[in-house]
């Protein structure tokens, strides 16, 4: 079975380490905040100027002056800090963020990522994504493995305008956890019940499959 959005978030959360500063992109990455393992402390960075993002507010706590990068109302965690956008991107560009999680339309075997526009169809803009992928060393891309029509999003070469060049090393899809190195995709884990054949079929770029590919583990 392909992973649900919640399972994708849970699997990413397993990569969090005690003391990490983490930037979570819009969409699935935002859900990661719901699965921070017990017993570890992490600080969530929101690039609009908040380090220490807390849960969504109750109706009584809603404050129009306090939002996240997805423009959702949020709260501040204990020990939060506020700052302007230049300071925020100094943290990001300067490599101070320990883990960045963001979505994408396509990734390729060279570690390129495309996530901000589909020419002639969709123009959203890159927001902070170009800075995030350029500044971070530890990035996890979360996305579906293939489009609704079964077209692979893990390619030999991205077809859409790039968000960043040669910067992606880890991709978590609804089917597999993949590492990118030496110009190839390497299959690390597969979603529970998903066959290696299915993953191979839906991966357009060269995929290295080791002899043993463990299934992802989830508590519950």
């Amino acid at each position: 079975m392909a992973l649900s959005r919640e399972q994708l978030a849970q699997r990413v959360a397993q990569e969090l380490k005690d003391g990490y500063y983490v930037n979570l992109g819009i969409g699935i990455p935002t859900l990661v905040a719901n699965y921070i393992p017990e017993g570890i402390e992490v600080m969530l960075q929101s690039e609009n100027g908040l380090l220490g993002m807390g849960p969504f507010p109750t109706m009584e706590e809603v404050d129009a002056d306090l939002i996240n990068a997805g423009k959702q109302t949020v709260t501040m965690a204990r020990g939060a800090a506020l700052f302007d956008s230049a300071e925020s991107f100094a943290m990001i560009r300067g490599g101070h963020v320990d883990l960045t999680v963001l979505g994408a339309f396509e990734v390729d075997t060279q570690g390129n990522i495309a996530s901000y526009m589909i020419p002639g169809k969709l123009i959203k803009g890159m927001g902070g994504a170009m800075d995030l992928v350029a500044g971070a060393d530890n990035i996890i891309v979360t996305m579906t493995h293939a489009s609704k029509h079964g077209e692979s999003k893990l390619l030999t070469e991205c077809t859409l305008p790039l968000t960043g060049k040669g910067c992606i090393k880890k991709v978590l899809t609804d089917l597999a956890f993949i590492e990118i190195k030496e110009g190839k995709f390497h299959l690390l884990e597969r979603a529970p019940g998903v066959s290696i054949e299915e993953i191979i079929k839906l991966t357009a770029g060269e995929l290295v499959v080791p002899e043993h590919v463990p299934e992802m583990m989830f508590n519950e």
Binding site: E47, D84, S85, A86, S88, F89, I92, R93, Y116, M117, I123, G125, M126, G127, G128, A129, M130, D131, G135
Partner: peptide, 9 residues
């Protein structure tokens, strides 16, 4: 279209 951090800078 300008990256957010570049725009701030």
């Amino acid at each position: 279209l300008t990256p957010q951090g570049t725009l701030a800078e």
